[in-house]
Amino acid sequence: MLAEGWRLNADIAYLPWTDFKGRDYHLLRPKTMFDEQRGNGGGGVQIEGVLSYFLTQNISVGVGGRYWAMWTKKDSDALCSSSGCVGEPRILAKYSMERWGTFFQASYKLD
């Protein structure tokens, strides 16, 4: 509790391993083609914080934020064409993703 009626929560999670598979579609071209990207290894993290205010002993409202990030190792990823992956990867790459957002919440605690 920060002060009378106020609470701050924070959570952190670490991902020790990630596995990624994605396709890059180009549907506005005359021929529909895709390239497939794959990777594994790497890691990730998720961080969340919530500031809540207790209206009563059982009812609270709050606002929070969340951040996600995931990445692969740069030496373990393959770029495959629409004809598939044959033999060794053609291009080594590193893939990453970051997302963040805010949210509002309300909760009711049962006695």
Rank of each mutant, 00 (worst) to 15 (best):
D11I: 03
S76F: 08
P89T: 09
W17I: 09
I12P: 09
A78Y: 02
S60T: 03
R99N: 12
G39V: 05
A93I: 04
A93R: 00
M1W: 03
S82T: 15
Y14W: 01
F54G: 08
K74R: 12
V63M: 06
R23C: 06
G44K: 00
S107F: 06
G5A: 09
A93V: 08
G44Q: 03
V86N: 15
Y14F: 08
A69V: 05
F54T: 02
L55C: 15
P16V: 04
N40Q: 12
Y67K: 07
K94E: 10
I47S: 14
I59A: 12
C80N: 07
H26D: 14
G22T: 09
D19M: 03
K21N: 15
Q57C: 07
P16N: 10
A106L: 04
D75Y: 06
M70F: 15
V86T: 06
L8A: 09
K73V: 11
S81Q: 10
L27Q: 15
W68R: 04
A10L: 10
L27W: 10
M70N: 11
Q37E: 02
D24W: 08
K31W: 12
G64S: 03
V86K: 12
K94T: 10
T18P: 05
S83E: 15
Y67Q: 04
K74G: 08
L28R: 12
F34D: 05
M33P: 00
D111L: 11
Y95L: 05
N40L: 04
G5W: 04
T56A: 13
S60P: 09
V61P: 09
E88Q: 06
G101W: 03
D24A: 12
G39F: 01
D19P: 08
L28P: 08
P30D: 10
G65Q: 05
P89E: 00
M97D: 11
D24F: 13
S83Q: 15
K73A: 14
A69H: 13
G65F: 07
D77F: 00
G43H: 00
P16H: 10
T102Y: 03
S52Y: 00
R38N: 14
G84Y: 14
D77A: 09
R38Y: 10
L55I: 12
I91S: 04
N9M: 05
K31T: 12
S107N: 14
Q37I: 01
D24R: 09
N40M: 07
F103S: 04
N58H: 15
C80P: 03
S107H: 05
Q37W: 05
M97S: 07
E36T: 08
R29C: 15
W71A: 09
Q37D: 06
Y95D: 05
H26Y: 13
I47E: 07
W71S: 04
D11N: 09
D24I: 00
Y108V: 13
D11T: 08
Y95F: 13
E48K: 07
S83G: 13
Y108W: 11
G41I: 01
E36H: 02
G22Q: 01
T32W: 02
G43N: 10
L55Y: 14
L27P: 10
G41M: 00
G41R: 01
C85H: 06
E36D: 11
N40D: 08
E88W: 01
A106Q: 09
L51N: 11
M70Y: 14
N9Q: 02
N58F: 12
L28V: 03
L28S: 14
R38C: 13
P89V: 01
S60K: 07
G62P: 02
V50R: 07
V45Y: 04
E36G: 04
Q57T: 10
